[in-house]
Design a protein around this nucleic acid. Structure first.
Lengths: 236, 236
DNA sequence: AAAAATAAACGTTAATTAGACGTTTATTAT
DNA sequence: ATAATAAACGTCTAATTAACGTTTATTTTT
């Protein structure tokens, strides 16, 4: 019988970088740890991979435990495995990032985790290498969103073009020309215009739109261009 | 003292998808396993992560053990963690892909590994989930090479534009218009023209070029466009 | 020694796209 | 009524792209 008897086994965890948008601000969901190690410090939501779980499944479970939500946009970012990253015991962490519409999120699913949304530019510093994970996740999202329509995953069912533009402006930390932006968005043909208007943020009101799910899926891999010169904006 | 006593530990390995180019053909380096499990079958080169190694370091070591080469282009692809992926015992594998100039490679560094280069489209099927890793690595390279000059990592110090074009044609499995290709390559300003010509593949001969390392590093993150409509070619 | 063959390298053009910027419109507040 | 304002639509120029044509350097053939 063959075994790998010589080898050391290590812990494997999944950590989730959870981005959310409430229609106005881009945020990240962090937990104040009610447990050891690093009790009372802020960290990403995470957990060990169960014996019968694959990595994606573990990420889904962890996300569900915190948010009560399923079928979220969830993508593997990277595996982190520096030997000293967890001071208690060597742990490999596979980081996933998730994009969610904050309105779908109901607060305080479990009181094992005290979770809080933070503005993306005003979050506390985190344990272990979690700050690095967040930075790399931000870069990944900026990179990917420059080419593919992932940011729609952050928006509610119906949303306005100014809201969408605001989201892009926050992700890239830049001002976008609204006349060109509207034109580009419309030219993708991904949106369906509704008759209803959102009057909350202007006198004239802005029409609501909804994502055409089929076209979204079909065109997801195509290269978009909502952001001029994205390469200059990705790594900031 | 805090411990993670409840948790199961698992094996963590690194597997390398090694792409090479000999000036004419795009290849992948595989090993015929001289050891258990799956002895005598083809697989990617891999190994367990050592107690004091980080993941990237383990990948470098594994690559060095097989090829004798250091400082190669090496990038994490993804972590694979399906519970049944290794039938002997649960093992998380972190896959890395490497790009190397085959001319640098000296055969048979160690006889623990019988390694062989295979044409990218004519490789044997591999153990475990290694075929999936190779497919995903190919996609990743097609995606990345459409935007960034990574394919230069596969070329020798001096190379001709027809060679470069041939490499792109193999990666994307498509014919490229040579007049547009030359112009695009020149417009990047990444290459330095040498006075010497390669006469081996045409009567007229093609000038050798060499990569301007500084410009390469500086412009690596910019978006290139050597390939028209890459999105149609990435996932084939 | 001239002619043919051929890949390499350079050039042209038309269509499309991108980005800068101007104008109109619907609505509310004054 | 008028002013104010964000939303939405429009225009123009420059840059980029891709399709396609031409010349050139060299070797092989005659």
């Amino acid at each position: 019988m063959i075994t790998y008897s010589e080898q050391t086994r290590v812990l494997v965890a999944v950590d989730c970088i959870i981005f959310g948008f409430d229609g106005e601000q881009l945020k990240i969901l962090l937990i104040k740890r009610g447990f050891q190690p690093a009790k009372d410090q802020w960290s990403l939501m995470g957990g060990f991979v169960g014996a019968d779980e694959n990595l994606y499944g573990a990420a889904e479970r962890i996300l569900y435990q915190l948010t009560g939500l399923k079928d979220l946009y969830l993508e593997q970012l990277k595996a982190y495995g520096s030997p000293e990253r967890d001071p208690i015991e060597r742990t490999i962490s596979v980081a996933y990032f998730a994009l969610i519409d904050i309105n779908k999120y109901k607060t305080q699913i479990s009181d094992r985790y005290h979770a809080e949304w933070f503005l993306i530019n005003d979050a506390p510093s985190l344990i272990f290498d979690h700050d690095i994970m967040v930075e790399e996740a931000k870069k990944r999202i900026r990179y990917k969103a420059a080419l593919h329509p992932i940011l729609f995953e952050l928006l509610p069912k119906k949303f306005t073009i100014p809201q969408l533009q605001n989201l892009y402006e926050q992700v890239y930390n830049t001002k976008i020309d609204n006349r060109n932006f509207i034109r580009k968005v419309n030219s993708t043909d991904l949106l369906i215009k509704l008759s209803e208007k959102d009057k909350s943020s202007s006198k004239r009101g802005a029409f609501y739109y909804t994502l055409d799910k089929n076209k979204y899926k079909a065109k997801f891999q195509s290269f978009l261009n909502f952001i001029p010169n994205p390469e200059h904006l990705i790594s900031m």
